[in-house]
Nucleic acid binder design. Structure first.
Lengths: 113, 113
DNA sequence: AGCGCCGGTTTCGTTGCGGTAACCAGGACC
DNA sequence: GGTCCTGGTTACCGCAACGAAACCGGCGCT
């Protein structure tokens, strides 16, 4: 129980990082270019974005397709494996919409003490 | 889109850390004592466990009940808010059971290059 | 007096994630 | 020759999470 391969550890193990979930969301509607990801993901720097994308490619969540044009064009696309995360992200979003305000209220009340 | 209060950010924001999900799992069947949590959560030190529990208490996910006995006895129990995370953790576990092997295979193939 | 139990705290150090800023390669365009 | 574009890389740094090990307070037991 509870080693890195344990199913219960998957959140911190793979999608607990800061940007992976948002990248999956951004690619939900179809392939996007590097620059098109930097826009909606406000605040991500190119370094962190490229690290995130590389890790996701390594794990088979996205495919990277580079077109030999100029200026260079690179597209990132969800694989079926990456797409399979969408229901999980939906569930997280639903939980958040319903319960996050309550959590924040509890935190604020605690801090007030 | 995608600030800390955005529902999509909830995984890293609150349950993306290493131990919170497992603590919720351990408390699923009922209240447990500090020492009873350290057992199944192999590898967690008392310091990290107490930090995790304190953060969860602050956010209203668990309640801490100290009995003034000796030797001291302290029990931790899920609140309704904490319990509401269970379906999300179930979904994560289900995804993991179904897809984690594929992810690991992709990673291994990538590392082989 | 000394030991053990429980539920921690303290100290110190390591690791890793994320961020800032500067730089780069190749071609197009002026 | 200089500048812009895309899609990055590199070097450096700070902070927070994580972890190992030692210690502690109160009581009961022997």
């Amino acid at each position: 129980m509870f080693d890195p391969m344990c199913p219960s550890s998957v959140l911190p193990f793979r999608i607990g990082d800061k940007w992976t979930g948002m990248v999956v969301r951004c690619l939900e509607q179809g392939p996007r270019r590097f620059g098109e990801l930097r826009g909606p993901l406000r605040g991500v720097t190119s370094k962190v974005l490229s690290e995130t994308l590389r890790a996701m490619e390594r794990d088979g969540l996205i495919r990277r397709i580079a077109y030999p044009e100029n200026p260079p064009r690179v597209e990132y696309d969800l694989t079926p494996l990456g797409r399979s995360l969408l229901p999980l992200l939906d569930a997280a979003r639903a939980w958040s919409r319903e319960h996050l305000p309550e959590l924040l209220r509890a935190r604020q009340a605690y801090d007030a003490d």
